[in-house]
C-alpha cells in the first residue's frame, strides 16, 4: 500500500520492538509445534522457579562478601512449607517463633535501615540479583547505619514490617523474588517501608520492580532509584503514595501490587 517502505515499519523491525510472542504462524487454528514447545519450556522454568528452595547458606556467604559485614540472620516465616506458603499469605507475612526469639535476643541498636532478603515466589531471582543490589545500594548510602541483614524463607513482603520493628530500624527495605512471568522467571522486587510495624498496608510502601539484568533494571539502576527513595524517606519521614505523588518518577517505580 505504501510506496517507499520505511525500514522502521517493516515486519522484521516491528518484531524487535516487543518481547511478545507475535508472528508465530499457525497450523490451522493451532500453534506450530516449535513455538508450542517454546511456551512449554518457559512455563516449566517459571514453575520450577516457584518451587525452587533458596540456598540460604550460599546466599549469606555472598552477602557477607558483598557487604563486608557480619553474617546474615537466617529467618523463616510461619508458613512451614511451599504448599502452605502458596495458600496462606497471612502466614508468609509473620515470622515463626524461633525466628522471632532470635531477633529478640539479637544485639539491637537503633539504625537507619534494615535489609531483608526474601525468597518470595522466585528464589532464583533473589539468589541472582539481591547480593549485587545490596552492594550497589550500600555504596551509594555512605554513613548509613544498617541492621544486620536478614535472609527469610517462605516470606511475603509484609514480613519485613515485623523484622524491621524488632531490629529497631527507621525503615525496612525488602528484596523479594517476584511472581515469575513466562518470560521473566528471575525478576526481583524491592519494597521500602518507613517506620515498619506489623499491619502496614501496601499503600504505605514504595516499590521498584522488574530488577532483572539484562532485560529489566540492572542492580546499579535499581540502587540509584532506591537510594533516592531512601534519602527522601529519611528526610520526609514517610514512604508510600505521598512520596510517589510529589515526584515525577520513571515508570518502573509505582505503587506495589497486592502482596
Amino acid at each position: 500500500m505504501n510506496g517507499t517502505p520505511d525500514p522502521r515499519r517493516s515486519a522484521a523491525w516491528l518484531r524487535t520492538q516487543t518481547p511478545a510472542r507475535i508472528g508465530i504462524g499457525r497450523a490451522g487454528a493451532g500453534v506450530p509445534t516449535a513455538p508450542l514447545l517454546d511456551f512449554q519450556l518457559a512455563h516449566a522454568l517459571a514453575r520450577d522457579a516457584v518451587q525452587q528452595p533458596m540456598d540460604c547458606a550460599a546466599l549469606a556467604q555472598e552477602l557477607a562478601q558483598a557487604l563486608g559485614s557480619a553474617r546474615a540472620l537466617l529467618l523463616a516465616s510461619a508458613a512451614a512449607d511451599r504448599a502452605t506458603y502458596l495458600t496462606r499469605p497471612d502466614l508468609g507475612r509473620r515470622l515463626d517463633d524461633p525466628s522471632r526469639r532470635l531477633l529478640e535476643e539479637a544485639d539491637r541498636q537503633p539504625c537507619d535501615a534494615a535489609l531483608v532478603i526474601v525468597d518470595g515466589l522466585s528464589a532464583t531471582a533473589t539468589r541472582s540479583h539481591a547480593p549485587a543490589l545490596a552492594e550497589a545500594l550500600t555504596e551509594r548510602l555512605t554513613g548509613w547505619r544498617w541492621a544486620a541483614p536478614a535472609i527469610v524463607t517462605q516470606g511475603r513482603v509484609a514480613i519485613g514490617d515485623e523484622i524491621g520493628a524488632l531490629l529497631r530500624a527507621d525503615m525496612v527495605l525488602v528484596l523479594i523474588g517476584e511472581r515469575p512471568g513466562l518470560s521473566s522467571p528471575d525478576s526481583l522486587g524491592a519494597y521500602l517501608t518507613w517506620n515498619p510495624r506489623v499491619g502496614r498496608s501496601d499503600a504505605q510502601r514504595n516499590c521498584v520492580s522488574n530488577i532483572r539484568p539484562p532485560h529489566g533494571l540492572s542492580p546499579a539502576q535499581a540502587a540509584d532509584k532506591l537510594a533516592w527513595l531512601m534519602t527522601q524517606a529519611r528526610h520526609r519521614r514517610l514512604t508510600g503514595t505521598a512520596l510517589k505523588d510529589e515526584h515525577l518518577l520513571p515508570a518502573s517505580i509505582s505503587s506495589p501490587p497486592e502482596s
Binding site: 511478545a20 507475535i22 513466562l182 518470560s183
Partner: peptide
C-alpha cells in the same frame, strides 16, 4: 500474543 502477557506476567488466551 502467544497467550503470554509480557507486561502483566500471566498467561491468558491467545
Amino acid at each position: 500474543p502467544g497467550a503470554d502477557d509480557v507486561m502483566l506476567g500471566y498467561q491468558s488466551t491467545s
